[in-house]
């Protein structure tokens, strides 16, 4: 009798434990972006970018990106960057550990990412329309992805020079060799950049992120089938661009 009760209890707890990531409601997280630009020649600019964001519970994403942009044409720039990131979360971070399903703690896990990008800009009056294509290779898990980002910036001018930028971008992450989704993450970036001076340009922004968790390696190895869970977050952040 006691044995039957115990087995029933075990069965019910394993069902209730949740062997797939929880969907949950969209959270509001904070984010900081710091950028330094240096123009070596009229065509070559370097970029150092530090990103920090508070994610769900105790997870924090932070990264440092270094690289160069080259202006091949008045409207076209190519870029190449190296990024070192911490706190990133991937599908395979959903693991079976200590008799339960949980997310890996990745806060101290560094990942190296190679980035190549091409951007096209066109000016119509006070509007800049831009489309940017980015390729990323993550050396940690050999994931390759393409990001497509169309967007528009409206320039508020003062005496012929930009005074405030209002921007709105959409970005889609297209996985090339991972995930079960054709678009595994989507972003909306909206914000304002204030041209305080030629050197200092602070900004505020709102981001919305929507992604999909699909079956992790551990989940597949246990032959538990498949899952697809959405996750979303809002971000409110501040940025600071330095040109020196």
């Amino acid at each position: 009798m006691i044995r039957k009760l115990f087995l029933t209890f075990l069965l019910s707890t394993s069902i209730l434990a949740g062997n797939v990531p929880a969907e949950g409601e969209a959270e509001v997280n904070s984010k900081i972006i710091l950028r330094h630009f240096h123009q070596f020649t009229p065509k070559i600019t370097s970029l150092i970018e530090y990103n920090w964001s508070q994610e769900e519970l105790e997870r924090k994403e932070k990264s440092l990106k270094l690289g160069f942009k080259y202006r091949v044409h008045n409207n076209v720039k190519l870029g190449i960057f190296y990024k070192r990131a911490y706190g990133l979360r991937h599908d395979d971070d959903w693991v079976w550990q200590n008799m339960k399903w949980l997310w890996n703690d990745t806060n101290s896990r560094g990942e190296n990412i190679l980035i190549g990008e091409a951007g096209y800009k066109k000016l119509f009056g006070n509007y800049i329309f831009e489309t940017r294509l980015t390729y990323e290779h993550n050396f940690f898990n050999d994931h390759d992805a393409i990001k497509v980002r169309p967007g528009v910036t409206y320039l508020v001018l003062d005496e012929g020079a930009a005074f405030i930028n209002l921007f709105l971008n959409y970005e889609a992450y297209l996985p090339l060799n991972f995930s079960e989704k054709s678009i595994y993450e989507q972003w909306i970036y909206a914000g304002l950049l204030y041209h305080y001076s030629d050197v200092i340009k602070p900004g505020v922004f709102y981001n919305f992120r929507k992604g999909y968790w699909t079956s992790s390696k551990d989940f597949k190895d246990k032959n538990l089938g498949k899952y697809e869970q959405t996750h979303s977050s809002h971000y409110l952040g501040v940025s600071l661009n330095i040109y020196y």
Partner: peptide, 8 residues
């Protein structure tokens, strides 16, 4: 100059 300026 506007197109030459980088913001991100």
């Amino acid at each position: 100059d506007i197109l030459g300026q980088d913001y991100d």
